[in-house]
Amino acid sequence: MNAAPSQIHTLGRLIAAGSIIPYLGPAMLELCTEVQIPASPLALAERITAKASVPHKIRHRLTQAAQFIENFKHRKTLVGLMNEAFATVPPPSRLHLALAASRAPLLVDTWYGDTLLHALRQARPQGDWGQVQGLSQSEHFGVWTAAYAAGGALLDRQDEPDLPPGWETLLYRPLGGRAPASNYLVSDTDFVEVLTEIDIQTPIPRAVQALRSGRSFLFIGCRFDDQLARAFARQIMKRSSDTHWAVLQGPLTRMEQRFLAEQNIQRIDLPLAEFAASLSDALTAAEAMAA
């Protein structure tokens, strides 16, 4: 659908009310300036293989290239390359900041950079939020996630359905992220381990499972032309509401069309920048009304 301004305003109001969960992908970086980090799996594959030689046939395949580096140059080398790739943080866009300020109970960020994390720190310095990141089984065997306070301190707590005291918002980073501890799910082995268990929800934090119940998802900056992207989205939104939205402009692949129909995701066929401007306005208006 081509969303009317009133529809986008409604989406913003529902995010602010806690009824819709924003689910952000790497294309959110298109809204930022001074972007020096990879903004897609292909760009990331090219970045890490420029620093470590891999067979030519897998140079553009992120998970396979990462696996080769892990196997033949050690996991620490792969983590170091990821840290280097995401060493800088693009300044948050207006939409990043508006989402951070919205006090949505759950935000999902499916890229490795720290822009949304910095938006939360900027919009809510009081620290009434925290994050949970997915962990690689290569480095944390038997432990699927780690929770961190707003300041980056690791929390010594089990995977629990309730948020820690004082948290109003949970930032969930299923693929990990650079800050604060360089946790990355990026190699074939990382994903095989998670996908083996994800259908029974073991790698999905219990707090995420609780917060998604009865809520809808709004996918921004995501594409579903990759099996991994579809698998993670499908399992993260499991047992949530039966109505969702995705901002997707232009032709869709056959698999994307099938996925949207399967998950009852309504397509918003608008340029990302146009949608972001309207949603930012709506979130700002909702915040002003709540003040």
Results as ranks from 00 to 15, higher is better:
His118Val: 10
Leu99His: 07
Val54Met: 09
Ala50Asp: 11
Thr77Met: 06
Ala66Trp: 10
Lys57His: 15
Val108Phe: 08
Ala43Asp: 14
Gln64Cys: 03
Leu81Met: 06
His74Thr: 15
Ser53Cys: 06
Gly80Thr: 04
Gln67Asp: 13
Pro92Val: 01
Arg47Met: 06
His74Trp: 08
Lys57Cys: 10
His60Gly: 13
Asn71Gln: 14
Ala87His: 08
Gln122Ile: 00
His74Gln: 10
Ala101Lys: 12
Ala45Asp: 03
Ala52His: 09
Ala52Met: 12
Pro92Lys: 06
Ile37Ser: 02
Ser40Val: 12
Val108Trp: 00
Arg124Ser: 04
Leu117Ile: 05
Pro38Gly: 04
Ser102Asn: 07
Gln67Arg: 08
His96Thr: 04
Ser93Glu: 04
Ala87Lys: 11
Leu107Thr: 02
Arg75Trp: 08
Ile69Ser: 08
Ala123Pro: 06
Pro90Arg: 05
Lys57Leu: 13
Asn71Arg: 14
Val108Gly: 08
Ala123Gln: 14
Arg121Trp: 02
Leu99Asp: 01
Ala104Ser: 15
Leu62Arg: 04
Pro125Trp: 04
Trp111Pro: 00
Pro105Asn: 07
Arg59Phe: 01
Leu107Met: 13
Val89Arg: 03
Ala52Val: 11
Phe72Ile: 00
Gln126Met: 07
Pro55Glu: 12
Gln67Ala: 11
Asn83Cys: 11
Leu95Met: 06
Gly80Asp: 10
Gln64Thr: 13
Phe68Ile: 01
Leu44His: 05
Ala50Lys: 12
Leu81Thr: 07
Ala45Val: 09
Gln122Ser: 09
Arg121Tyr: 03
Lys51Gln: 14
Ala104Gln: 10
Asp114Cys: 12
Pro38Tyr: 08
Thr88Cys: 02
Ala43Arg: 14
Pro91His: 07
Arg124Ile: 06
Arg47Trp: 15
Arg121Ile: 00
Pro92His: 09
Leu95Thr: 06
Arg103Asp: 15
Glu84Gln: 13
Asp109Ser: 14
Phe68Tyr: 15
Arg61Asp: 14
Leu44Asn: 05
Gln36Val: 07
Ser53Val: 13
Glu84Pro: 03
Pro38Thr: 09
Arg94Asp: 15
Ala85Trp: 04
Ala45Glu: 05
Leu106Ile: 09
Pro90Glu: 10
Ile37Gln: 04
Asp128Lys: 12
Lys57Ala: 14
Tyr112Phe: 15
Ala100Tyr: 05
Asp114Trp: 00
Asp114His: 04
Val89Lys: 03
Ala45Gly: 08
Ser53Leu: 11
Ala119Arg: 11
Pro125Arg: 10
Ile37Met: 01
Arg61Ala: 10
Arg59Met: 14
Gln67Ser: 09
Leu62Thr: 13
Pro91Asn: 11
Leu97Gly: 00
Arg59Asn: 09
Phe68Leu: 02
Ala98Gly: 05
Leu44Pro: 12
Ala123Lys: 04
Phe86Asp: 04
Gln122Phe: 00
His118Met: 09
Pro105Met: 05
His74Ser: 14
Val35Trp: 05
Ala65Cys: 10
Leu116Gln: 12
His118Glu: 15
His74Gly: 00
Pro41Met: 13
Met82Pro: 01
Ala39Asp: 12
Pro92Arg: 08
Gly130Lys: 00
Thr115Tyr: 02
Thr77His: 06
Ala50Pro: 00
Ile69Phe: 09
Arg47Ala: 14
His74Lys: 09
Leu81Lys: 01
Arg124Leu: 04
Leu120Ile: 02
Pro91Gln: 11
Ala43Thr: 12
Thr110Asn: 11
Leu42Gln: 13
Ile58Pro: 03
Phe86Cys: 07
